[in-house]
Design a protein around this nucleic acid. Structure first.
Lengths: 225, 225
DNA sequence: GTGTAATGTTTGACTACTCAAACTAATGGA
DNA sequence: TCCATTAGTTTGAGTAGTCAAACATTACAC
């Protein structure tokens, strides 16, 4: 198994490559996520390339090989199962479990992971609505489109929240904006760049930028599969 | 929080000092437990002394200060609660949970630990019968006397198994020698240095050296308090 | 009481990870 | 097109932990 440090880099590179249009992760953003200086990120990118976990080109960014991707998905599986466990079994608040899982994910063996998966009933999404990869590393495409793209009158179901920031999650939870919740878009104000939705907890207005971090799907679609 | 490495040394020194008549831990045994060379153990002993976690004298062994003891007991609490969780909630076999807990114990925050403790119903012994320190660092004295000290005809209750070796635990479990089990001593053969006991799973003969790792108490004594 | 075995210490070197700071390359206005 | 800004790289140095091996001390058996 890779060191904890290496695992963190792999996970960060994986997410950055997903988001980036070029499919490459830049050093500045990578360094910011991992919490090191860019020089350190460059050094690690080279090291990962030497270990065949990543491809690296001078001034050309870093991306994962098949081997690196497999390892990254594995870590994500551990992370999301642990988050699910922390919320479902230990009843911790979903706004804090990300940070906790971040530490525990490196210490969990396959045996414990399998037992955890079984205990939780083989869930396929974590508390934030993110899909949990299966044990073979298969990862469903996350569903839903940004709430910011919905129009007035749309009635949708919240599928996932793509931001692990405690502050944002607390805000979302307080207004009933959790995965599985049904909301109706009341108004979209292009000038104010805001959107107002009716949730169980009442109406909320938030910036489109914030609504972009909330993924919605047709209210009819089921919870699973 | 101390590093994972430091935590492992503290735990090892704590156990060694308990066992040793002088109350000091020697470098050779310390190094063996932690899995390093004696030179490395010496270096760490000095480092711990500098951090006021331990007392160290050249050629005189190492022992924990109050601060070091507090930290060690805290780690032991995490370890034993996690072991209990792995057996009780995840249904893993008690023979393997020691090694698993060894890795997880360093990644658990006070918040998660508290939730775990609550989930498990605030247990006071782990699956091996070892007492779990409370959150203030209070640790009951482990009860029982070695099974090897019992005489023929004694009817006792197994209180704890003081060996975390997978092989020994598998043997013990196979013959019904688990904490809480009632056994009757059938015979003690001083010449053969062996003892034979009647357990639920049938009669077993084991060396006195092995029986020394099993603690027994009067069959009448209750499970708790 | 002396020599040997056991135990403990020191040193120099290595790996993994990190930073600061000097430096280089790419990018994108005006 | 040029040059400032941003992004990326390199270097030198530091911390934490480790080992091997030379060395020092202690314990104890005779």
């Amino acid at each position: 198994m890779a060191t904890e440090t290496v695992e963190n880099y792999l996970k960060a590179i994986y997410t950055l490559c997903r988001e980036s249009p070029t499919g490459e992760a830049g050093m500045t953003r990578l360094a910011a996520i991992v919490g090191v200086t860019t020089g350190t990120a460059t050094a690690m990118a080279k090291k990962l390339a030497k270990a065949k976990l990543a491809r690296y080109q001078r001034f050309g960014g870093v991306s994962l090989t098949a081997k690196g991707t497999r390892a990254a998905v594995d870590i994500i599986r551990r992370h999301r199962l642990i988050e699910t466990f922390l919320v479902q079994t230990l009843k911790l608040d979903w706004s804090i479990v990300h940070a906790e899982a971040e530490r525990i994910e490196h210490a969990i063996s396959p045996v414990v992971l399998e037992a955890l998966d079984k205990l939780l009933g083989r869930p396929d999404v974590d508390p934030h609505g993110d899909p949990i990869p299966d044990s073979d590393g298969r990862l469903r495409d996350p569903r839903g489109e940004p709430l910011s793209d919905c129009g007035a009158g749309d009635s949708v179901r919240i599928a996932r929240i793509t931001d692990q920031e405690e502050r944002f999650l607390l805000f979302a939870a307080r207004h009933g904006l959790r995965p599985g919740a049904h909301v109706t878009v009341l108004a979209v104000d292009a000038a104010a760049e805001s959107i107002t939705v009716q949730a169980d907890a009442g109406p909320v207005t938030l910036a489109l930028a914030a609504a972009r971090k909330i993924m919605a799907e047709d209210a009819a679609e089921g919870r699973r599969r």
